[in-house]
Protein backbone atom coordinates (compact mmCIF):
# COMPACT_ATOMS: atom_id res chain seq x y z
CA UNK A 1 0.00 0.00 0.00
CA UNK A 2 2.89 2.36 0.74
CA UNK A 3 4.12 1.67 -2.78
CA UNK A 4 0.74 2.63 -4.24
CA UNK A 5 0.76 5.86 -2.26
CA UNK A 6 4.30 6.61 -3.41
CA UNK A 7 3.12 6.08 -6.99
CA UNK A 8 0.44 8.76 -6.45
CA UNK A 9 3.04 10.99 -4.77
CA UNK A 10 5.19 10.78 -7.88
CA UNK A 11 2.13 11.24 -10.15
CA UNK A 12 1.28 14.60 -8.59
CA UNK A 13 4.90 15.77 -8.82
CA UNK A 14 5.23 15.42 -5.06
CA UNK A 15 9.00 15.93 -4.93
CA UNK A 16 8.79 19.22 -6.83
CA UNK A 17 5.85 20.33 -4.70
CA UNK A 18 7.71 19.57 -1.45
CA UNK A 19 10.83 21.35 -2.76
CA UNK A 20 8.77 24.38 -3.78
CA UNK A 21 7.03 24.49 -0.41
CA UNK A 22 10.31 24.15 1.51
CA UNK A 23 12.02 26.79 -0.63
CA UNK A 24 9.11 29.19 -0.21
CA UNK A 25 9.13 28.74 3.57
CA UNK A 26 12.89 29.36 3.75
CA UNK A 27 12.60 32.47 1.56
CA UNK A 28 9.66 33.80 3.60
CA UNK A 29 11.59 33.22 6.82
CA UNK A 30 14.70 34.95 5.48
CA UNK A 31 12.66 37.94 4.24
CA UNK A 32 10.94 38.19 7.63
CA UNK A 33 14.30 38.64 9.31
CA UNK A 34 15.87 40.86 6.65
CA UNK A 35 13.03 43.29 5.98
CA UNK A 36 11.27 44.56 9.09
CA UNK A 37 8.84 47.29 8.10
CA UNK A 38 5.04 47.36 7.77
CA UNK A 39 5.08 47.53 3.96
CA UNK A 40 7.22 44.43 3.68
CA UNK A 41 5.06 42.66 6.24
CA UNK A 42 2.01 43.42 4.10
CA UNK A 43 3.74 42.27 0.92
CA UNK A 44 4.93 39.06 2.59
CA UNK A 45 1.45 38.42 3.96
CA UNK A 46 -0.09 38.89 0.48
CA UNK A 47 2.51 36.61 -1.11
CA UNK A 48 1.88 34.01 1.60
CA UNK A 49 -1.87 34.26 0.99
CA UNK A 50 -1.36 33.80 -2.75
CA UNK A 51 0.78 30.74 -2.18
CA UNK A 52 -1.75 29.37 0.30
CA UNK A 53 -4.53 29.91 -2.27
CA UNK A 54 -2.55 27.98 -4.89
CA UNK A 55 -1.95 25.16 -2.43
CA UNK A 56 -5.61 25.08 -1.47
CA UNK A 57 -6.70 24.84 -5.12
CA UNK A 58 -3.94 22.36 -6.06
CA UNK A 59 -5.78 19.27 -4.79
CA UNK A 60 -8.82 20.08 -6.95
CA UNK A 61 -6.67 20.48 -10.04
CA UNK A 62 -4.61 17.33 -9.69
CA UNK A 63 -7.03 15.00 -7.95
CA UNK A 64 -9.05 13.79 -10.89
CA UNK A 65 -6.28 13.78 -13.45
CA UNK A 66 -3.45 12.34 -11.40
CA UNK A 67 -4.78 10.56 -8.35
CA UNK A 68 -8.01 9.13 -9.69
CA UNK A 69 -7.23 9.17 -13.40
CA UNK A 70 -6.47 5.72 -14.60
CA UNK A 71 -7.19 6.61 -18.19
CA UNK A 72 -6.55 3.23 -19.69
CA UNK A 73 -8.60 0.25 -18.60
CA UNK A 74 -5.49 -1.88 -18.91
CA UNK A 75 -3.73 0.13 -16.22
CA UNK A 76 -6.53 -0.29 -13.73
CA UNK A 77 -6.94 -4.00 -14.44
CA UNK A 78 -3.21 -4.41 -13.90
CA UNK A 79 -3.37 -2.52 -10.61
CA UNK A 80 -6.27 -4.62 -9.40
CA UNK A 81 -4.30 -7.76 -10.11
CA UNK A 82 -1.41 -6.71 -7.86
CA UNK A 83 -0.86 -8.63 -4.58
CA UNK A 84 -2.13 -5.68 -2.58
CA UNK A 85 -5.66 -6.35 -3.79
CA UNK A 86 -8.53 -4.04 -4.65
CA UNK A 87 -9.38 -3.00 -1.09
CA UNK A 88 -5.86 -1.78 -0.36
CA UNK A 89 -5.78 -0.04 -3.74
CA UNK A 90 -8.88 1.96 -2.76
CA UNK A 91 -7.53 2.52 0.77
CA UNK A 92 -4.29 3.84 -0.69
CA UNK A 93 -6.21 6.47 -2.71
CA UNK A 94 -8.21 7.68 0.26
CA UNK A 95 -5.24 7.59 2.62
CA UNK A 96 -2.98 9.41 0.21
CA UNK A 97 -5.47 12.20 -0.34
CA UNK A 98 -5.99 12.50 3.43
CA UNK A 99 -2.25 12.67 4.07
CA UNK A 100 -1.83 15.19 1.24
CA UNK A 101 -4.58 17.42 2.68
CA UNK A 102 -3.11 17.08 6.19
CA UNK A 103 0.30 18.08 4.87
CA UNK A 104 -1.09 21.05 2.95
CA UNK A 105 -3.14 22.18 5.97
CA UNK A 106 -0.18 21.91 8.33
CA UNK A 107 2.04 23.82 5.93
CA UNK A 108 -0.50 26.60 5.31
CA UNK A 109 -1.10 27.00 9.06
CA UNK A 110 2.67 27.28 9.57
CA UNK A 111 2.91 29.85 6.77
CA UNK A 112 0.04 31.91 8.16
CA UNK A 113 1.56 31.78 11.65
CA UNK A 114 4.84 33.03 10.24
CA UNK A 115 3.08 35.88 8.44
CA UNK A 116 1.13 36.66 11.63
CA UNK A 117 4.28 36.72 13.80
CA UNK A 118 6.01 38.89 11.19
CA UNK A 119 3.08 41.31 11.13
CA UNK A 120 3.08 41.44 14.93
CA UNK A 121 6.84 42.08 14.95
CA UNK A 122 6.51 45.23 12.82
CA UNK A 123 3.56 46.49 14.81
CA UNK A 124 0.77 45.92 12.28
CA UNK A 125 -1.68 44.38 14.72
CA UNK A 126 -4.59 44.66 12.29
CA UNK A 127 -2.76 42.60 9.69
CA UNK A 128 -1.70 40.15 12.39
CA UNK A 129 -5.30 39.56 13.46
CA UNK A 130 -6.35 39.13 9.80
CA UNK A 131 -3.72 36.40 9.37
CA UNK A 132 -5.08 34.67 12.45
CA UNK A 133 -8.60 34.90 11.01
CA UNK A 134 -7.45 33.37 7.70
CA UNK A 135 -5.81 30.49 9.60
CA UNK A 136 -9.12 29.69 11.27
CA UNK A 137 -10.78 29.20 7.84
CA UNK A 138 -8.17 26.78 6.50
CA UNK A 139 -9.59 23.65 8.19
CA UNK A 140 -12.98 24.51 6.67
CA UNK A 141 -11.53 24.41 3.14
CA UNK A 142 -9.79 21.14 3.83
CA UNK A 143 -13.04 19.68 5.19
CA UNK A 144 -14.84 20.74 2.00
CA UNK A 145 -12.20 19.12 -0.22
CA UNK A 146 -12.33 15.93 1.79
CA UNK A 147 -16.10 15.86 1.29
CA UNK A 148 -15.67 16.57 -2.42
CA UNK A 149 -13.20 13.71 -2.72
CA UNK A 150 -15.52 11.46 -0.75
CA UNK A 151 -18.38 12.25 -3.13
CA UNK A 152 -16.59 11.93 -6.47
CA UNK A 153 -14.14 9.08 -5.80
CA UNK A 154 -16.76 6.29 -5.83
CA UNK A 155 -17.75 7.37 -9.36
CA UNK A 156 -14.18 7.38 -10.64
CA UNK A 157 -13.01 4.16 -9.05
CA UNK A 158 -16.16 2.12 -9.57
CA UNK A 159 -17.18 3.34 -13.03
CA UNK A 160 -13.73 4.17 -14.36
CA UNK A 161 -12.19 7.55 -15.11
CA UNK A 162 -13.91 8.31 -18.42
CA UNK A 163 -17.33 7.11 -17.33
CA UNK A 164 -16.91 8.81 -13.97
CA UNK A 165 -16.03 12.09 -15.66
CA UNK A 166 -19.03 11.74 -17.96
CA UNK A 167 -21.39 11.05 -15.04
CA UNK A 168 -19.97 13.97 -13.07
CA UNK A 169 -20.32 16.27 -16.09
CA UNK A 170 -23.90 15.15 -16.68
CA UNK A 171 -24.81 15.75 -13.02
CA UNK A 172 -23.18 19.19 -13.00
CA UNK A 173 -24.82 20.19 -16.29
CA UNK A 174 -28.19 18.95 -15.02
CA UNK A 175 -27.75 20.95 -11.81
CA UNK A 176 -26.79 24.08 -13.78
CA UNK A 177 -29.74 23.56 -16.15
CA UNK A 178 -32.11 23.18 -13.21
CA UNK A 179 -30.70 26.35 -11.68
CA UNK A 180 -31.15 28.31 -14.94
CA UNK A 181 -34.74 27.03 -15.33
CA UNK A 182 -35.47 27.97 -11.71
CA UNK A 183 -34.02 31.44 -12.17
CA UNK A 184 -36.03 31.98 -15.39
CA UNK A 185 -39.35 30.47 -14.41
CA UNK A 186 -39.26 29.84 -10.67
CA UNK A 187 -39.90 32.03 -7.65
CA UNK A 188 -36.45 33.64 -7.23
CA UNK A 189 -37.67 35.62 -4.21
CA UNK A 190 -36.95 32.47 -2.16
CA UNK A 191 -33.26 33.28 -2.51
CA UNK A 192 -33.78 36.55 -0.68
CA UNK A 193 -34.32 34.54 2.47
CA UNK A 194 -30.71 33.32 2.37
CA UNK A 195 -28.70 36.23 3.67
CA UNK A 196 -25.03 35.56 4.39
CA UNK A 197 -24.82 38.65 6.57
CA UNK A 198 -27.73 37.46 8.70
CA UNK A 199 -26.15 34.03 9.00
CA UNK A 200 -22.89 35.61 10.15
CA UNK A 201 -24.82 37.75 12.64
CA UNK A 202 -26.68 34.67 13.87
CA UNK A 203 -23.36 32.94 14.53
CA UNK A 204 -22.11 36.03 16.36
CA UNK A 205 -25.27 36.14 18.49
CA UNK A 206 -25.18 32.39 19.13
CA UNK A 207 -21.47 31.63 19.58
CA UNK A 208 -22.21 28.18 21.00
CA UNK A 209 -23.58 27.19 17.56
CA UNK A 210 -20.35 28.43 15.97
CA UNK A 211 -18.30 26.44 18.46
CA UNK A 212 -20.37 23.32 17.81
CA UNK A 213 -19.98 23.76 14.06
CA UNK A 214 -16.25 24.17 14.46
CA UNK A 215 -15.98 21.07 16.62
CA UNK A 216 -18.50 18.83 14.92
CA UNK A 217 -17.92 19.67 11.25
CA UNK A 218 -14.50 17.99 11.00
CA UNK A 219 -15.81 14.91 12.77
CA UNK A 220 -18.76 14.68 10.35
CA UNK A 221 -16.45 15.22 7.37
CA UNK A 222 -14.14 12.51 8.66
CA UNK A 223 -17.04 10.14 9.20
CA UNK A 224 -18.41 10.71 5.69
CA UNK A 225 -14.92 10.30 4.24
CA UNK A 226 -14.55 6.92 5.94
CA UNK A 227 -18.04 5.88 4.87
CA UNK A 228 -17.18 6.79 1.28
CA UNK A 229 -14.05 4.62 1.50
CA UNK A 230 -16.02 1.62 2.80
CA UNK A 231 -18.68 1.98 0.09
CA UNK A 232 -16.10 2.39 -2.66
CA UNK A 233 -14.00 -0.53 -1.44
CA UNK A 234 -17.09 -2.72 -1.29
CA UNK A 235 -18.25 -1.79 -4.81
CA UNK A 236 -14.78 -2.10 -6.34
CA UNK A 237 -14.28 -5.54 -4.80
CA UNK A 238 -17.58 -6.72 -6.23
CA UNK A 239 -16.76 -5.50 -9.72
CA UNK A 240 -15.47 -7.93 -12.26
CA UNK A 241 -12.43 -6.98 -14.23
CA UNK A 242 -13.45 -4.61 -16.98
CA UNK A 243 -13.26 -5.82 -20.54
CA UNK A 244 -10.33 -4.44 -22.49
Amino acid sequence: MVGLMYKDFVAIGGKYLVCAMTAFLVIMTACSFLFTNPTTALVLALIALTFVSILIIWPIVITEARILGHDAKKKQNFTYSLPTGKKKFVAAKYLFFLIMEYGILSYTILLMQLAQINAQAVGTEDLSSKMTAVSSFLPLFIGIYLLNFALETPFFLVLGYKTGTSVKTVLLVAAMFALVVFMLFGDASVLNQFDLYEFTQYLKDHPVVAILLEAVAPVVSGGLYYLSYRVTAYLVQRREMRDE
Partner: peptide, 17 residues
Protein backbone atom coordinates in the same frame (compact mmCIF):
# COMPACT_ATOMS: atom_id res chain seq x y z
CA UNK B 1 -22.28 26.12 29.63
CA UNK B 2 -20.13 26.72 26.52
CA UNK B 3 -17.13 25.89 28.71
CA UNK B 4 -18.24 22.27 28.50
CA UNK B 5 -17.39 22.28 24.78
CA UNK B 6 -13.80 23.41 25.29
CA UNK B 7 -12.37 19.86 25.56
CA UNK B 8 -14.03 18.62 22.35
CA UNK B 9 -12.96 21.79 20.54
CA UNK B 10 -9.39 21.34 21.76
CA UNK B 11 -9.34 17.68 20.73
CA UNK B 12 -10.63 18.40 17.22
CA UNK B 13 -8.35 21.40 16.67
CA UNK B 14 -5.41 19.45 18.11
CA UNK B 15 -5.90 16.63 15.62
CA UNK B 16 -6.14 19.12 12.75
CA UNK B 17 -3.10 21.05 13.97
Amino acid sequence: YAAAFVPILCIVSSIIG
